[in-house]
Design a protein around this nucleic acid. Sequence first.
DNA 1: CTGTATCCAATCTGATACTG
DNA 2: CAGTATCAGATTGGATACAG
Lengths: 108, 108
Amino acid sequence: MSTCKADHCPCGQTCPLQVALKRIGGKWKIPILCVLSCQQGIRYNELMKKVTGITNTMLASSLKELEKDQLIRRVQYNEMPIRVEYFITEKGNQLIPILQPLALWGME
Amino acid sequence: MSTCKADHCPCGQTCPLQVALKRIGGKWKIPILCVLSCQQGIRYNELMKKVTGITNTMLASSLKELEKDQLIRRVQYNEMPIRVEYFITEKGNQLIPILQPLALWGME
DNA sequence: CTGTATCCAATCTGATACTG
DNA sequence: CAGTATCAGATTGGATACAG
């Protein structure tokens, strides 16, 4: 994006920050990751309740993208009825401490 | 957003991360901040060149929002023709080191 | 030089209904 | 239970022209 190359600047030619924000951007991915970082093995309908205000459509599509980017893992148990559990991955968990200073900054 | 309240989770009831990402989200704000963190007192048309690919519309609106959020400062010199310089603020500059680990994470 | 105004396309988000 | 399909509205981004 930018052509800035100073040492203290996180952006290079293809800005890794834009790459990162693409993965965790949007309205719902961070709340989902937060919930998963607190409670592993959570189920779909539990997530619906914990992530206040999210719709079916958005939860499904967000989970799919997070899984594709390997920030979460989906485990399906072929019982009857079917049961699915979601887990945060190592890579996803690394984000939590990284984002904490940003959260503090966001609170002023 | 989420109801998660564990100590290691950056999200509370009104997620400060969402607040932060609103301020620096979108396609162009981070590249603009990066350029400004490297070069203070840069002018409008210089920014156009440095932030590769940005359009007039987006540069103007992004600058306005960044100024409103007090991440940058606009200084106008009433010469002829008019001259304007943009500076990153203390608050904006605090973001750079905070975002660096996220940039590293984005590079894998 | 430093922007605004207008209009359009694309993308994101949400409501509702339906499925294995 | 754990989703998918479809459609509509909202938001974002961009092209072009114009203004102080």
